[in-house]
């Protein structure tokens, strides 16, 4: 599973302060730590970034890529900021990823950017009409997004379907709907569609001590359903992915497998 390191988010106070002060050190330290712990892509979440988003995203992309040899997931609703970030992204370690398009016409511009800059695109299975009720509804939206992606010239192998993980504390039913959706998404194409989740959302609102427990077990269930990628904390999830690979025979067991 591809772990997209989630720790560089504007929601975190330390990261926000570093972003506003253009202080590279904390950003690079977090990026390096996420990489060393197993992230092979780093999420740069700058929020809505209505003011100065373009310059901020460019600064984030270059700051991260100065520190780690990994592509960046550009995470903002500001499409201009996305395009600015794509312009400076160094593709030598892989394609950038855009978070995200959806079935909302306002988000179709993202597909245009994906095609133009040869980026991976996350397709969040929500439309204008609000949250999907179940796995089937997520699939219907996914099919719409896939059609749209082809129309805009984004190859389906570059599209990562995101079933939208919701908080288990408030939307318990959706936890199982999402697992089912991950399985169903793969059936929508041959070769199977790729999938991604924002993992830690499952435990949002739960007590702090419970969060890693919920995240890890949920990650394991999603992996077993065929999940391709997760925006997650590598520190928490790498052991799940490695253990899953060992259990399923994808990696040969050795006592030190967690350290590899």
């Amino acid at each position: 599973m591809l772990i997209i390191g989630e720790k560089l988010s504007i929601i975190a106070k330390r990261v926000r302060e570093a972003m506003f002060a253009r202080d590279k050190a904390p950003i690079q330290e977090i990026a390096k730590r996420q990489y060393n712990e197993g992230s092979r892509m780093i999420d740069a979440n700058i929020g809505p970034a209505e003011d100065g988003g373009e310059e901020l995203m460019q600064w984030m992309v270059t700051t991260i890529q100065e520190a780690v040899a990994a592509p960046v997931c550009l995470d903002t609703t500001n499409q201009k900021a996305i395009e600015a970030g794509l312009k400076v992204h160094n593709g030598q370690w892989g394609k950038p990823m855009i978070n995200s398009t959806s079935n909302d016409p306002e988000r179709f511009g993202i597909l245009e950017l994906g095609a133009k800059y040869d980026a991976l695109v996350i397709g969040l299975t929500v439309g204008k009409g609000g949250l999907p009720a179940d796995a089937e509804e997520r699939c219907a939206i996914a099919a719409e997004i896939m059609a749209r992606a082809m129309e805009y010239g984004v190859p389906l192998e570059d599209l990562y379907l995101d079933p939208l993980v919701l908080q288990i504390a408030t939307s318990q039913d959706h936890a199982a709907h999402v697992i089912k959706a991950i399985k169903m998404f793969q059936e929508l194409n041959d070769p199977a569609m790729k999938t991604v989740v924002g993992l830690s959302n499952i435990s949002n609102g739960a007590p702090k001590a419970l969060r890693p427990i919920i995240n890890k077990y949920y990650a394991l269930l999603l992996l077993n359903a065929g999940l391709t990628a997760a925006i997650a904390d590598a520190h928490e999830i790498a052991e799940v992915a490695k253990t899953y690979d060992v259990i399923m025979g994808k990696t040969l067991y050795a006592h030190s497998y967690l350290e590899m």
Binding site: Y253, A254, S256
Partner: peptide, 14 residues
């Protein structure tokens, strides 16, 4: 033992 073989290589590279 395949697993111990891998393990020894890991220990050595560590």
């Amino acid at each position: 033992d395949i697993n111990l073989s891998k393990q020894l290589n890991i220990l050595i590279t560590q």
